[in-house]
Amino acid sequence: MFQIDCPWCGPRDQQEFSYAGEGGIQRPQDPSATTDAEWADYLFMRRNPRGMHHEQWRHVHGCGQFFQVTRHTVTYRIESIRRMGESAAAGGESS
């Protein structure tokens, strides 16, 4: 268990939050021009790094907001937390 510093509510226990998938995934600009492989990659393929990971979390039992978290998957250390739309961290490329 760990605490997450909600950008609206401040530090709260992890049980108030739900994980909402990998963050920073860009929808292809022109879906009709993508190949099946590219589309499948966008839809289904996710990174599973041993190290820093860009994630989305939601304060579901709180303010209900989604936000971005950069977390180390081994140490669980949270490096940064940003509201949606705030500058994405460098190295946030997906797929």
Binding site: C9, R12, Q15, E16, H61, G62, C63, G64
Partner: peptide, 10 residues
């Protein structure tokens, strides 16, 4: 005030 959980209830 806040939303939270108490004894697993929202």
């Amino acid at each position: 005030c806040t939303r939270s959980t108490l004894a697993k209830s929202a």
